[in-house]
Design a protein around this nucleic acid. Structure first.
Lengths: 96, 96
DNA sequence: TCGTATTGTATTCGTTCGCTTACATGAGAG
DNA sequence: CTCTCATGTAAGCGAACGAATACAATACGA
């Protein structure tokens, strides 16, 4: 599942929790946070701390993957890698 | 790339930023945070707010994916979402 | 019906975030 | 060597986090 917003995280966690048939309090205890925090997290609280969020995901058995789109570009092989960096570098304008 | 800790996020972001040849300040401006915050984030600050982190990843063109290991249910032949939860619940044993 | 479990909401409070400002170090260009 | 840019570090401050507590509403079973 794609995770783009905090609401995504919220529903992801809630779905996973209900799927495991855990109560909010049970999850909160396992993670080491208050039940209220779980409530807010599931509602998509954008100010939740990542450390706690990662702990929660781990507790639920959810794995996170990060991928850089242009990294595996049109060409699967690195032979034709264009290195946009170098192009931009050579063409970089005088800083304002 | 697997993201398990805040240090993973930090190095992920830093690698991506340097790969794009952006300065910390440039990234900070794009995301809408202070440069100091970027510094701390790249060092793996576990208390960074998830909303800002997601904004940062998005700005860097990084996509996040979440996967549930044992998601493979018994069978998904049901067209109308069977709600296993309810079934189990009706058959649940006396709580310890 | 009543009683229990779960979830959502509100309040209060100590702690800490993230911002601003300032200064120090390191690398690179002139 | 000097100057600039990028990065790391520190102190102060307003704002918000997360915890604890209490109360309401819903759902389910006895």
């Amino acid at each position: 599942m794609q995770v783009k917003t905090t609401n995504d995280i919220g529903s992801l966690i809630r779905d996973r929790r209900t799927h495991l048939r855990w109560s909010q309090e049970e999850l909160a205890t396992r993670v080491g946070v208050s039940r209220l925090w779980i409530v807010q997290l599931e509602k998509g609280k954008p100010t939740a701390q990542i450390g706690l969020v990662l702990r929660t995901l781990k507790e639920l058995g959810l794995a996170l993957d990060a991928s850089a789109p242009s990294e595996t570009g049109p060409r699967s092989t690195d032979a034709g890698t264009v290195d946009l960096d170098r192009i931009i570098r050579s063409a970089r304008p005088a800083k304002s």
